[in-house]
Design a protein around this nucleic acid. Structure first.
Length: 124
DNA sequence: CGCTTTTGACCGGCGC
DNA sequence: GCGCCGGTCAAAAGCG
């Protein structure tokens, strides 16, 4: 199973379109924002961490509802939101928010490796 | 038994 | 002031 993953990262990318949470001259921008464009059919992409769904809301820009997940850990409050592209329902956008403070709990596939190098920048 | 998931409601911010 | 949108929490139920 080949998984096409595209990393967008960089908080400069404000995904807010209508909410207007990130207005011009925004100072409270969110750091550590990883946007994964994954070509998959399931939104529940296991990256090796435990996630507890805490909400689901439908965005106007997307035909499909957005899912909100949270990392269940002792002091690891990493948030993750999944959204499907209305243009391509087969494309899932996984946006990570926050930084983990613990190693992965499991090893799914090469997927974890992608996340690992993202969160663990290889020292020159 | 523990944990997770699901829906609704509520809230805050912004726009007009 | 109201409406809109997004985001989060709460409670309950279901499942392993």
């Amino acid at each position: 199973m080949k998984v096409e993953t595209r990393i967008q990262h960089h908080e400069a990318n404000n995904i807010s379109e209508g909410g207007g949470k990130v207005t011009k001259g925004d100072k409270k921008i969110r750091r550590h924002r990883f946007a994964f464009h994954t070509r998959s059919h399931v939104d529940i992409l296991d990256d090796g961490y435990r996630w507890r769904k805490y909400g689901q809301k439908a965005v106007k820009n997307s035909k499909f509802p957005r899912s909100y997940y949270r990392c269940t850990h002792k002091g690891c409050n990493v948030k993750k939101q999944i959204q499907r592209l209305s243009k391509d329902e087969e494309v899932v956008v996984t946006t990570y928010e926050g930084m983990h403070s613990h190693p992965l709990e499991k090893t799914t596939d090469s997927f974890e490796q992608i996340l690992k190098q993202l969160q663990t920048p290889a020292p020159s």
